[in-house]
Amino acid sequence: MTDSFDPPYPNYDILRKWDSPSYNQITRDVLTERLTAVPQRQFLDEQEWRLLQAICDQLVPQPERTDPVPITPFIDAALTENRTNGTRFAGIPAMREAWRKGLAAIRAEAMAQHDTDFVSLDAHRQEALLHRINDGDAEPAHWDGMPAQRFFRSVLLKEVLAIYYAHPAAQSEIGFGGPAAPRGYVRMGADRMDPWEAPADRRNR
């Protein structure tokens, strides 16, 4: 495990093609809203919101960014609208209740292990605590019958990743082509790229 993230495409930004044929109108509309209308807290209470932010900082740390990709606000917005994802696994309650219960359980895990709130723990302890849940070593007593690993992977982590990698900054950092309609791509072979794609991975240059 490394502590820092070393970007392979440091100067690439998919937003630079905004005015090109790679972006159709609806894509521009969707991204404009995502970038400019970051939702305000509505569903979670202040304590839950701070806890979730601390968790998101561990799930996708962005220490190098002055303007980190916002994640908590979009989770809260989905919960406000009562959005579901089509699957409720056995033992996991309805979406809103599942998040409330999961956050309470992580708070309880922190209290039981360290006698303090998760938010107050140092980053190393926060990460270790989340790894235990991810690895299936949560304390069932705190989870009130909800399968902890299942919640962590299938509800929490999945949603966090879906939000992070839907953001242009995250897509730029991995060299993804980004929006591509109506214009797609011409050069399909290995190490071949169109001028509107990320230049070659600097590690290969």
């Binding site: 609806i26 991204l31 839907a166 929006p179 309609a181």
Partner: peptide, 8 residues
Amino acid sequence: EDFASDER
């Protein structure tokens, strides 16, 4: 007009 290049 309805389909964006956006997973979410």
